[in-house]
Simulated scan of single mutants.
Amino acid sequence: MTPADLSLTVLHAVRRAVDEGALIVDVPSSVKVERPRGGGVGDYASSVALGLARPAGRSALDVAAILEERLRDRPGIRAVDITGPGFLNFTLDGDSDGVVVRDVLAAGARYGCSDALSSDRVRLLPALEPRAAVLTETVLRLLRSQGADAAISPGGERLAVLPASVDGTTVGARGDAGDLPDDVIRWAFLRPAAHDRVLPGAPLLVQHERNPLFRVRYAHARARALLRNAAQLGFAPAYEESVDAAGLLSLLGDHPAVLLSAARLRAPGRVARHLEAVADALLAFQHTVLPLGDEKPSAAHRSRLALAEAAGVVLAGGLSLLGISAPDQI
């Protein structure tokens, strides 16, 4: 069971409790699961009961107990514990981290795509203003990645967005902004929330760690380079044993939920910010992947390489959904 699967399982438990009358509350659109913090146990935790307590008119512990009853025997969940004021803590069956890495590598660029919105028919209003046009086109791509029937149509939903200028230059009808590349313009438009000003373009041209677009694309290039270097050393990726990289693994597991949330909320900036977090975690992790000195490749190295490859796949897939290229070399 992946974190995205767990999130949907908890959401279904909330819906079941509401349908059965055990809780009187609006069912949230999504449920967040994350690694347990201090005092937590197991593989993942959720604060959903705390968020539902006040609207339900119950204590968080009562809500957690209602949900625990509907979660304890679900496939893939070994145990559900309630800690603190009402946190739900989950211990999963089997190798949950390995499942995430293998799922990413099996799905490739389609990792995170789903049919969660297959019953949704979305029509968006055509946009002429450049930033609105880029936002609309990207939201359509995100919606379709989640199975929605999404298209442009007169009379459709209008996406509210602050008009664009890059470095003080108003972007023209074709997206022209001086000599700025298309990838830079798209990141400058999409990375902020739609109601915020676009990012200045000039800093996004600089190949430096302070440039978030460079970091994301460079992290993808590093993942590809690690695979080439490993091949030269005679070994290939294979997730054979647990890797001490909880932050990176958690981010990869969260990717499907991020895409779904971005589609539902018409917020591609969520994807961009998530990719930044994945890139930063990968760049911090990359130095552990290859053998050092006379060290021979081992199961640990093969597993770390598989994790790095999976991170690169998520970065490439996310950038593709934003309409931005992911070069193999920088």
Results as ranks from 00 to 15, higher is better:
residue 135 L to Q: 04
residue 135 L to F: 03
residue 136 T to H: 01
residue 137 E to I: 00
residue 139 V to N: 10
residue 142 L to C: 05
residue 147 G to C: 08
residue 148 A to Y: 06
residue 155 G to H: 04
residue 156 G to K: 03
residue 157 E to C: 12
residue 159 L to V: 02
residue 159 L to P: 01
residue 159 L to F: 06
residue 162 L to A: 15
residue 163 P to L: 11
residue 168 G to L: 10
residue 169 T to K: 12
residue 170 T to P: 13
residue 171 V to C: 10
residue 171 V to S: 06
residue 172 G to R: 08
residue 174 R to I: 05
residue 174 R to V: 11
residue 175 G to Y: 11
residue 178 G to Y: 02
residue 181 P to W: 02
residue 181 P to R: 03
residue 183 D to S: 13
residue 183 D to P: 04
residue 185 I to K: 05
residue 186 R to C: 09
residue 186 R to P: 02
residue 187 W to G: 07
residue 189 F to S: 10
residue 190 L to N: 03
residue 192 P to F: 12
residue 197 R to I: 08
residue 198 V to W: 03
residue 205 L to A: 06
residue 205 L to R: 05
residue 205 L to V: 06
residue 209 E to T: 14
residue 210 R to K: 05
residue 211 N to P: 03
residue 211 N to E: 05
residue 212 P to R: 10
residue 213 L to F: 10
residue 214 F to R: 00
residue 214 F to W: 14
residue 216 V to W: 00
residue 218 Y to A: 13
residue 221 A to W: 01
residue 223 A to I: 09
residue 223 A to K: 02
residue 226 L to H: 02
residue 230 A to Y: 01
residue 230 A to N: 03
residue 231 A to W: 02
residue 232 Q to K: 12
residue 232 Q to Y: 07
residue 233 L to G: 08
residue 235 F to Y: 15
residue 235 F to K: 06
residue 235 F to C: 09
residue 236 A to I: 09
residue 236 A to F: 14
residue 239 Y to L: 10
residue 239 Y to T: 05
residue 245 A to E: 13
residue 245 A to Q: 04
residue 246 A to L: 11
residue 247 G to T: 13
residue 247 G to W: 00
residue 247 G to M: 07
residue 249 L to H: 00
residue 250 S to D: 15
residue 250 S to N: 14
residue 250 S to E: 15
residue 256 P to H: 07
residue 256 P to W: 03
residue 258 V to L: 12
residue 258 V to H: 02
residue 260 L to S: 11
residue 261 S to H: 11
residue 262 A to W: 06
